[in-house]
Design a protein around this nucleic acid. Sequence first.
DNA 1: CGCCACGTTGAATTCTCTCAACACTAGTGG
DNA 2: CCACTAGTGTTGAGAGAATTCAACGTGGCG
Lengths: 253, 253
Amino acid sequence: MSLSCDACALSGICLPSNLSVAEITVLEANIHTGVKINKGDAIYTAGERFTGLYAVKSGSFKSVIATSQGDEQIVGFHMPGELLGFDGFDSSHANTTVALETAMVCKVPEDSLEFLCNNVKGVSTHVHKMVASDVRAHNSALLLIAQKTAEERIVCFLKNVSDRFKKRGFSGSDFSLSMPRGDIANFLGMAPETVSRLFARLEDEEIVRFNRREVHIINEAEMSNRACGHGNALANKAQANRAQANKALAANA
Amino acid sequence: MSLSCDACALSGICLPSNLSVAEITVLEANIHTGVKINKGDAIYTAGERFTGLYAVKSGSFKSVIATSQGDEQIVGFHMPGELLGFDGFDSSHANTTVALETAMVCKVPEDSLEFLCNNVKGVSTHVHKMVASDVRAHNSALLLIAQKTAEERIVCFLKNVSDRFKKRGFSGSDFSLSMPRGDIANFLGMAPETVSRLFARLEDEEIVRFNRREVHIINEAEMSNRACGHGNALANKAQANRAQANKALAANA
DNA sequence: CGCCACGTTGAATTCTCTCAACACTAGTGG
DNA sequence: CCACTAGTGTTGAGAGAATTCAACGTGGCG
């Protein structure tokens, strides 16, 4: 089950892009490739000692923090090619990171990480890159939740996922969400019902089509438009009309 | 204006705690201490090339990201002893970081940083520590905004600031906020009016006393209580429901 | 002294949540 | 093979929290 790094479709995303074959060999000798994680299982849990970073090879993950009250907050979703584990960089993890579907990861153990940073040029800066992009992802999530309406959050979320698929060579307009509605809602700071309603609205307006977790983006331009806060002022009205239509329909039935 | 690191009140916070005098000397030779930043001036702006990390010596800062629409989101406040600049770790900054009051920073230039990480034991792990705490701070900010009511956010924010003062040897019950109401509101994802109203409420209930930007915490126990979502009866109920929803969420994970 | 940024307060509106019921799907066991 | 259940998702109606809009204080500073 161990796939070598140079054969991996993700090299260039999870690795510095300009490594020699010799360097990749050194690298491979220091990491554990092809570690399988079953759906629902955690790579690491909050409080656990930091033992290394992980690169997602396939499948996807969510990172969750918990409050003392027992409620949880999803702080990020992780897709193939992404590096995770920075939350524990100083000794122990603050998050619990769980597989949303059966997944494959490569582990870079703590000491190997140090060795690689010092001996393979580019690794150190690559790690920095990943740290920075992690920080940036958190920042934009903050912006999203703090300033945007529920619709904007949903649209931005879909666009974000779409972009990440695109970046990895998959279709950006047809893809499948690996997480349930409740997880999306939690991540975006809203009720699951609101996610449902807004998905329905986007369908009504023929911007996106949903089929369970399948997503098909029809009108990407309008998506971008809405992500920027130029939402449809009539959206509410449309919603009201639809509700009325449904009521009439129910009455007939 | 250049204060040596071993005389600095913050060593042990911004530095690894167990350095020898010799090591501190090496360190000092590689960083710029005592750089003054005037109120309102930026240490770095979004898009600017990364040239190093900064340690806050005195004063305070806000980090801001901007959307294409021109609205801004404050993603963090920085107090003395804190390290900042990770958002640009991979080449250019995503944030603009501005002084809220006249401040003093030490700069660790990019190449010195690398040198120090490789030659002074503890620096590398200290940087990791700082990265991790940066990540954690963003995570808890996310939790705060995504799941908490406006009152809980305000209370948590005040407690957070209080804790940071305490950590640095200042009073945790009497301190001064360096940012205007609008900045607090922006950071917490609410309207400035809401901040005002909730401050007023906390005064009415004799939990905190405000005088312009001066803060005097009267009833710390009640603060902690409210930070955890045990506000008034209604807030309590809402929280309980949400906790339950999240528990369900956790169960399916 | 008057200006301007900052802060407070009120009233109405609106968005999102909560509560509650129902629909759909997949997996289980009779 | 089909009922049954649990998990997941959808929809409706009402309630409530927070926003918006607007007017009004207040303090620092030229």
